[in-house]
Computed example of a mutant assay.
Amino acid sequence: MKCPFCNHSELKVTDSREAPEINAIRRRRECLNCQRRFTTFETFQLVQQVLKRDGRYEDFDEGKLIRGLEAACRHTTISHEQMFAIAHQITFTLMQRQVKDVTTKEIGEMVMAKLQGLDPIAYIRFACVYRRFTDLGDLMEAIKFVQDQKEPVLSKKF
């Protein structure tokens, strides 16, 4: 690692803490040349393969998962911190399973399970892309599913 300010390679770690919300270690570093300080985050790298619908394999990429969540959650009640937490929880779950490959179906279902309880609009947006709705009937079924999940337990007698 090199200093981002002067490109010098000799650095000193001045502080190290866990950042559990993003499954990382936060390190405060100081350059021994220019004495400027900066923060780095060390995260684990998941080396699982994702089996795509077309039969191809690609490396699991948490960044891609986050981008998908950002698209689904744009202009909803879900914060960036919640999106990152969902992505990290899914990554952690996949890592704990200790299998060498995972399907896009498994990942998609995990995301939908997380979004379902947080925001119905984000859930529907993600479902539209993930399930590849071909007509309005499929979309209406997904909306009905979300509405049925949100029905109050008590009857509405006024």
Rank of each mutant, 00 (worst) to 15 (best):
A142R: 01
F145S: 07
R125H: 08
I143D: 00
R132G: 11
I121Y: 06
A85R: 10
Q147G: 08
R125D: 05
I143C: 03
E106H: 03
K100P: 05
K105E: 14
Q89R: 12
P120M: 09
I121M: 01
E151R: 12
E109R: 00
V111H: 00
M140W: 09
M140C: 03
F84R: 14
L115S: 02
V146Q: 12
T103K: 03
F133T: 00
E141N: 10
I86V: 07
V99Y: 07
M110T: 10
E151H: 13
G117E: 15
F84M: 15
Q96A: 05
K114Q: 12
D138S: 06
Q149M: 09
L118V: 06
L118A: 05
E141L: 07
F92D: 12
T93Y: 13
V99Q: 08
K114V: 08
Y130N: 10
Q116N: 02
G108D: 02
L115H: 04
D101Y: 14
Q149H: 15
L136E: 09
A127D: 06
R97Q: 15
L115I: 14
M110V: 06
H88T: 14
E151Y: 14
Q89H: 15
Q98D: 15
M112R: 04
E109V: 05
F133V: 01
T91Q: 05
A142L: 02
I86H: 00
R97W: 14
L139Q: 01
L118I: 03
V129W: 06
V146F: 10
R131K: 13
E109H: 06
T91P: 05
K150V: 09
Q98T: 08
I90Q: 02
I124L: 00
K105S: 15
E141S: 11
E109W: 01
R131D: 04
E109I: 12
F84H: 13
A113T: 12
E109Y: 04
E151P: 12
G137F: 11
L94H: 00
G137N: 09
G108W: 06
Q96H: 11
V111Y: 00
E106Y: 03
G117Q: 04
F145K: 07
Q96D: 13
Q98I: 04
P120L: 04
T104A: 07
P120D: 13
G117I: 04
K114H: 13
R132A: 11
G108R: 03
R125F: 08
L94V: 02
Q98A: 09
M112W: 07
A122E: 04
D148T: 04
D148I: 03
E151G: 01
V129A: 01
A85L: 06
I121F: 09
F133S: 02
V129Y: 06
L118F: 11
I86Q: 01
E106W: 06
A87R: 03
I124A: 01
L139S: 00
F126L: 02
D101Q: 08
H88N: 05
F92R: 10
A127H: 01
G108S: 05
I143L: 04
Q82C: 02
E151W: 09
C128G: 06
A142C: 03
D148M: 11
A85W: 11
T134E: 13
D135A: 07
Q116D: 11
D138P: 05
K150P: 11
